[in-house]
Write a protein that binds this DNA or RNA. Structure first.
Lengths: 113, 113
DNA sequence: CCTATACATAACCAATCATTAATATAACCA
DNA sequence: TGGTTATATTAATGATTGGTTATGTATAGG
């Protein structure tokens, strides 16, 4: 995982349309027009969002005649999750004390970027 | 957690300078000049990044004389993590099969945004 | 007081981004 | 062949971003 990948991944996730697309793709593959249907937005706009998601590694696209079915990819999401793991101690009750936090930091030195 | 909050949080995380600032703040509070020191960047640039992080709820700022010490806030990071949790089955081995994935989706309907 | 320090704000610039409308490409169907 | 459907590409436009310099505002300390 490179730094640039995290940049692209978080940037891609920072848009409600794109998150809605990902949520739809959790239910399985979908074509561009299927993905565009729920939105008050033109098809080219959706195609651009899909390109952003693809470049961020969040989706991949197949080929089925004239359709380009999209499906979710795990890797980028896991990378984002791994980055956040380095901060988990902040919000978990069992690490709320300063001692717990310091121990955590000493024990596994967290992601370095 | 509102949708707009997630927008701001992911957008704030999509910058390597800001992620480096958060990483530094894991070790404890720091002032603006302390945070600016490692970067080849002017102090106003760092102040802007800090404002982005503050508006995203990722840091908060105190007052100590003329210093404005920054510290990490847990909430926004936890919200981002919670959102990602809805996709965990994608990258976890024990859910790699289609059956496992479908069962997961049926069982707990994941975050709705 | 005076001056230096810590930080914020304003004005500005270049680059990137989101969106649309218009057009192109390519596959399916009659 | 021709017409329609699915999707991509291009060009134009307006907003946002990340950085700069210059300046302002408290506060600390001699």
């Amino acid at each position: 995982m490179s730094v640039g990948d995290l940049d692209a991944t978080f940037a891609a996730l920072a848009d409600p349309t794109r998150r809605a697309i990902l949520r739809r793709l959790r239910e399985g593959e979908a074509t561009v027009t299927e993905l565009a249907e729920p939105f008050a937005m033109t098809q080219p706009a959706i195609s651009k969002h899909l390109k952003v998601l693809e470049r961020a590694g969040l989706i991949s696209r197949g080929r089925d005649g004239r359709r380009r079915p999209c499906r979710l990819r795990a890797d980028a999401l896991r990378d984002a999750n791994d980055w956040l793991e380095g901060y988990r101690s902040l919000w978990e009750d069992r690490y709320r004390s300063l001692d717990g936090l310091l121990d955590e930091l000493k024990e596994r030195n967290g992601p370095d970027e």
